[in-house]
Amino acid sequence: MWDQILEDAPRFFGPWNLLFLGEALVNTLLLSYIGAALGFMIGFGLAIGRHPRLYGILPVRLAATAYVEVFRRIPFLVKLMCVFFAFQLSGTQATLFTVALVTVVLSAAAFAAEIARAGIEAVPAPQWDAAEAMNFSRWRVLTRVVAPQSWRVVLPPLFGYAVGFIKSTSIASQIGVMELTYAAKILNTRGFSALLCFGTILVLYFLICWPTKRIGERLEARLGRRAKA
């Protein structure tokens, strides 16, 4: 087996294949990072909109809660299909990449909302009391008092999920999005050994996930340093 791999390797890592894998890598990166970034922003918005002491008015709270509870419980593949058919039904012309990106965003938003909610609730009520009694606006209570003390609770699970989303993007290969897993499948069907194809993307996934985890740890150390509530 090794002989075959060694024989295949120069051809496998030829310029055309590298370009192909490079494009797939870029797509995986875009799906993961843009998806997570947009999703986390929307998720934080949902958490803020759900909180009764921030901006939580009842209809918004109910809608946000329903969204969060439902989307956290649907498998990624099912969400992907739902988004795919939703685009088809609405008659909107969307690329497969857009479908996958929207799915990652919707998914990330639901998880981030729940993580942020836990972070907000980890800040004791007396901290809110003091800020409110001193006439802090809700936005200032959030940005000056609550958020700085929440990072410590929010960041570790958030980056845990971020790594999870990177891995989930592989499921987008099921609808034919040209990302790493799909690229490996195509190269495999072109006759390259499965070990070489999937071994290569395994390394690439690791090269994305590992620094992501490190960034999370760094942020945690920086933002969480002065927030031992």
């Binding site: 007396p126 901290q127 009391d129 003091a130 800020a131 009694a133 001193m134 006439n135 802090f136 200032r140 000056r144 008092v145 700085p148 003390q149 002065r226 927030a227 031992k228 509530a229």
Partner: peptide
Amino acid sequence: AIVFQQYNLFQNMTALRNVAIAPTLV
């Protein structure tokens, strides 16, 4: 102005910032 039983100082700020934040910000 109210002073609480559990002090309720902002844990993420120094003593000086705790005292100065409301006058500057609010």
